[in-house]
């Protein structure tokens, strides 16, 4: 089974442009109930991610007014050049990669590094379980 079969497609998870601010990012993450947002440039190339973990670490380390934090570019606080997988990768190896890196989500790109989806652990596990019981 391939990643493309179970990944969340564009429009169903948080995606932000590089100059969008943290406040907008947090709203989108809450809207989609996901702990990760992908950050892309104008052409859709994946530039970074911002996660609940980034938020926790920033709150502890930055020690600046929340109002100031909200208006920062989200990319300033995210992870640049994050780990990513291809839509043509196998689902099983991608879930193993998640375990290896202790993450629940992986951005999915196509052959030209454009963001095309997000692999989330729950649907991935569900699909793998179903394939084993089928």
């Amino acid at each position: 089974m391939l990643v493309s079969h179970v990944m969340l497609v564009l429009g169903t998870f948080p995606v932000l442009k590089q100059d969008e601010i943290v406040k907008v990012c947090l709203e989108k993450m809450s809207h989609y109930r996901l702990g990760i947002a992908c950050i892309v440039d104008d052409s859709g190339l994946l530039l970074g991610i911002f996660t609940d973990g980034d938020l926790r670490r920033k709150l502890l380390n930055a020690q600046k007014p929340i109002a100031s934090f909200f208006v920062d570019d989200v990319l300033d606080h995210g992870t640049h050049n994050p780990l990513r997988i291809k839509d043509s990768d196998s689902l099983a190896s991608s879930v193993e990669l998640m375990e290896l890196h202790h993450v629940w989500d992986l951005p999915v790109v196509d052959s030209s590094s454009k963001l095309v989806g997000l692999l989330h652990l729950h649907p991935a596990v569900k699909a793998l379980l179903q394939s084993h019981t089928a």
Partner: peptide, 11 residues
Amino acid sequence: MSPWNMKNSVR
């Protein structure tokens, strides 16, 4: 204005 919110005017 806070200095960080001037970014909105810049934008």
